[in-house]
Design a protein around this nucleic acid. Structure first.
Lengths: 249, 249
DNA sequence: GCGATGATTTGATCTGGGTCAATTTTGCGG
DNA sequence: CCGCAAAATTGACCCAGATCAAATCATCGC
């Protein structure tokens, strides 16, 4: 089921001046839709926030007060029951956007999921109202947000296929394939290897299995030579074709 | 696993003049974002298409040539492997919009899922280019599409929780609850009852179980008095509170 | 109304992955 | 380098739900 470790709430929200011009995700995040001039508006309303591993950014059910960009680190988006069962519905990597349904929908919007830092995490926060206003003013921004949301939707639906119909082996292979691609996009690599952003427990909560089953499947893939690792977190090499074949459909 | 019945491709695409003014979903679909004047643009480029139960609108992997609105009937959005396993990733009801990622993303967009009519189905089709152009011209339309997409994303993630962590009983209860709400919104009711839009096999493919397990769980709920039905498809009465309780989290 | 055909229900049995319980690794702080 | 707590692996056994196999039940053309 995974770790029920009581994760602490994030305390201070640093006050370093967020200078968009030097931002690490200036050109890959939503902000890439804005010109240097335009981004000044955003700069004015944004602030930085740092979270340590295990700290929670927002809890499921909280009033949704703002949006954010992930600048650095990895976070998990999750939902859980009191009895310990929990499901990770998405991972957040640098340049990903955080923000639920907007418009004047049901009056007061609530955070649909808990967002918890997996590694050291750096966020760029925008107040909800201000950001929504910007969307109206800069169409390119809204278009980019729409594109991203549609991609997320497709990803979520692909994950539904994994959770609904794949075997344990297929799930683990799919996950590894998915992470290998994501991590490589984000440059965190050098050669064929990469680090797993999640521990066994979190992987299990993401692909709908238990820690033990995830471990056994990884061991199996290793025995077959499809995977080579050093320690439990670092992948030295993986046979993408074989993984693809093992991942089902 | 469900029915592997070879579903036929939809033949003719009727040519009745689509008069938006009298459209059944004029005020509930995306189109509600447009004024009577504005909607004329859309009217000009749209055409109707009728599908019978079992016919396929688009196949997963086809080139994505257009968008559409569901005017009447129910369709399923699905993805499957050759071996018969398949997952229904969403249902389409009247006023729902059909359209994958847009923007000049990866050059040629492909349909991510197969869309098959479950009942008699009436669609209003727009060519891709024309519709995308309209999005640029009418911001309210784009905003509405964004809102809908965000809601769909949240729905998909909630379904991930169901598929990843819920028991058979919880899944069936969640599904019934979900359908009861949806069907009632769409007026297809009179009193407390409603019709199930899917047969046992499709329900199974939607909630990640087998036909037999779905059947057994429904029988169980019936024995407990939480559910009363006439035939296999019509719900006479259901205890929403009890279902809520049975649906887990 | 009368078969017939496909959908649903029910029963018997099997099994993939969960659960419980030890080990063994890994990564640190000192 | 040592010791220790947390994470991962491995093993033994169990069970929810899958699979296989018959009955029933609807529905519909005639």
């Amino acid at each position: 089921m995974s770790n029920a470790t009581a994760s602490s709430i994030a305390p201070d929200e640093g006050a370093e001046p967020p200078v968009c011009a030097t931002c690490a995700v200036r050109n890959s995040s939503l902000c890439s839709a804005l010109s240097p001039d335009e981004i000044a508006d955003l700069n004015r309303m944004s602030r930085r926030k740092h979270l340590s591993p295990g700290q929670v950014h927002v809890f499921e059910g909280d009033a949704a007060r703002d949006f954010a960009n992930v600048i650095q680190g990895v976070a998990k988006l999750m939902r859980g029951a009191e009895d310990g069962r929990q499901q990770i519905v998405g991972l957040l990597l640098p340049s990903d956007f955080i923000g639920g349904p907007m418009g004047p929908g049901d009056g007061q919007a609530l955070e649909p999921y808990t967002i918890e830092a997996v590694s050291d995490l750096e966020l760029c926060i925008f107040p909800r109202d201000g950001f929504e206003a910007l969307l109206g003013v800069y169409p390119a921004l809204e278009r980019k947000l729409l594109d991203r949301t549609l991609s997320e939707l497709q990803l979520a639906r692909d994950w539904m296929v994994l959770l609904g119909r794949k075997t344990a082996r297929e799930r683990v292979a799919t996950f590894l394939l998915h992470v290998a691609r994501k991590m490589r996009n984000h440059g965190c690599q050098g050669g064929g290897g990469f680090d797993l952003p999640l521990g066994r427990g979190d992987i299990a909560d993401h692909i709908g299995l238990t820690i033990e089953t995830v471990s056994r499947q990884i061991t199996q893939l290793r025995k077959e030579g499809i995977l080579q690792m050093r320690g439990a977190r670092h992948v030295l090499y993986c046979d993408m074709d074989a993984l693809q074949k093992a991942s089902g459909f």
